[in-house]
Design a protein around this nucleic acid. Structure first.
Lengths: 231, 231
DNA sequence: GAAGATTGTCATAATTATGTTACTTGCTAT
DNA sequence: ATAGCAAGTAACATAATTATGACAATCTTC
C-alpha cells in the first residue's frame, strides 16, 4: 500500500517553534511547509491542498483565530492550535471557531505527533478501531491511546513523564537515543531541563519495570551516548 | 543514482578549526567552502546555494548568532553551531534562533560527520528508516545507530573510544591508517594525546575482539605506518 | 486547602574509561 | 649477531560518566 504523505502547513512567527514542529513532522514522514504570517498562509492554503494546519494563536497581523475562520471557507482540513496561553478561555474559543484540537506550549515531539495523527485519522473517513496505536518490543506493549504499558506479567503503572520516556525509547528500540533527543521527544523544544534529569527518570522507570516483574535491563545504558531499549 | 555533493559553508576565524572541519567534510565527499568572518559568510551565502552552514558562535565582528539570524532570511538550510562554551544557556540560545544542532569543542571527525549527515538527511524529505547506518568488514558489523559491534559469535562490548577507533579503522578497511589520522578521527583536532595512546587502545580493542571469539589479527599492524583492518 | 503524587535538581557513591609511563618483546638492517 | 627502533603489554592514577537517594517545588485530586 502506497501512501501519499499528508501535507501539513505550519504557521508561526517564531523560527524556533516552526523549526521544532517541522523537524518533528518530517521525521514522522509528513510533508511540512512553513510560513510565518497569516496572509501568506491563506494564500498557500488556497493554492494547495493541505491535510492539516498547525496554527499559533499569537501571530503578527492576522491572528490564528482569524486565519482559522478564513480557512474554514476554503477547506475542511482540521486545525491544531498552538498557544502559550494555557487558559481555559483560549481553549474554548479556539475550538468553537472550528479548530479541532489545541496544544499548549511547551509540548514535546511525541505529544505533538499524537495530536496530529489523531486529527488526520479523524479526517480520513472516521477512525479505524482496528488500527490501535501501539508499540511493542521485547515483550512489552505500549498502548498510546490508553496510555498503558503492559506485558505477560501485567501492567506497569507509569507517570506521564515515564510513559513518554519509555515511548521515546521503544519507538527507537534497538537504537541508542541520546539524552538530548529524549528531552526533545518527551519534554519539548525548550528543554530548560538538565540532561541529568533524564538519568533520574530512567532510574524510576527501571524501578517500576522491575517492580512489575520485568527485566529492568530492558533499558540499557550505552555509556557516553545515551540509552537504548533492547530490541 | 547520481548525487550532487552537498555544499557546505564553514565559518570560523581559527584556521586550525576550519582546516580540520573542511578536511573532514571533503574526505566525506562534501563540497566545503571556508570564510573567517560573518560579513563575507553572508555575502557568500547570498550568492550561492549552500545546503548547510557550520558556524562558530565566537566570531570577530558579527557573531554566530547574529549571522544565523541573518541567514534565516535568505535560506532554510540547517545550521550546525560550534562552540567552546559548553553551557546549557548557550545551547538553548542557539537552538532558539533556529539553528538546528550544536557541537561542543573538542569534537572528533566522526562526531562531526554524524551531525552533518543527520542535518542534511533531515532537510531532504525525512529519514529513511530502512537505511541502517552500518559498516561491515571481515565478518564484523558495526551498527552506528545501535552503537554495537557484532559478528557470528555475538556482540563485542566496546567503550566509546574503542568503538570510535574501530569505526575509523573499519571505514578504511584494507587501507593503512596512521596513528595521527586515527587521533584526528576518533579523538579530535586538538589531540594533546600521545600517539602512543593509540597503541594502548589497539591493544584493548584486540583483547576485546579476542575475548568475544573473533580473530584479534583483524586489526593488523603495519610497522612504521599505522594499523589496518583486514579487508 | 490538604494529602498525595509527580517532577526537577543536587550531592554523593559506585562504576567504568582513559592517558601515561615504564618496561618487555620483537623486528630489521647492518 | 646485535644495536636500535617500533610495537606490545601491564600497571596505575586520574578523569569522566552513571546510579542512587534525598529534598524541595509543583501539580492533582478530592
Amino acid at each position: 500500500m502506497i501512501e501519499t504523505p499528508s501535507r501539513i502547513l505550519v504557521v508561526d512567527d517564531e523560527p524556533s517553534i516552526t523549526e521544532f514542529v517541522s523537524y518533528a513532522l518530517r521525521k514522522e514522514g509528513y510533508d511540512a511547509d512553513i510560513v510565518d504570517n497569516g496572509e501568506e498562509a491563506f494564500a498557500l492554503a488556497s493554492a494547495n491542498n493541505y491535510d492539516l494546519f498547525v496554527l499559533d494563536i499569537m501571530l503578527p497581523g492576522m491572528d490564528g483565530y482569524e486565519l482559522c475562520r478564513r480557512l474554514r471557507s476554503k477547506t475542511t482540513a482540521p486545525v491544531l492550535f498552538l498557544s502559550a496561553r494555557d487558559t481555559e478561555l483560549d481553549k474554548v474559543v479556539g475550538l468553537e471557531i472550528g479548530g479541532d484540537d489545541y496544544l499548549a506550549k511547551p509540548f514535546g515531539v511525541r505529544e505533538l505527533i499524537a495530536r496530529v495523527r489523531a486529527l488526520l485519522r479523524r479526517g480520513q473517513g472516521g477512525e479505524f478501531p482496528g488500527a490501535s496505536n501501539s508499540i511493542t518490543a521485547s515483550g512489552i506493549t505500549l498502548d498510546e491511546d490508553a496510555h498503558t504499558a503492559a506485558g505477560d506479567h501485567g501492567e506497569i503503572d507509569l507517570t506521564p513523564r515515564e510513559f513518554e520516556l519509555l515511548a521515546s525509547l521503544m519507538k527507537s528500540a534497538g537504537k541508542v537515543v541520546s539524552r538530548e533527543d529524549l528531552l526533545r521527544d518527551a519534554w519539548g523544544w525548550e528543554y530548560l531541563t538538565e540532561t541529568k534529569t533524564v538519568d533520574t527518570h530512567i532510574k524510576r522507570l527501571r524501578d517500576k519495570i522491575h517492580a512489575a516483574g520485568y527485566d529492568p535491563g530492558l533499558v540499557e545504558t550505552v555509556r557516553g551516548y545515551g540509552y537504548r531499549f533492547k530490541a
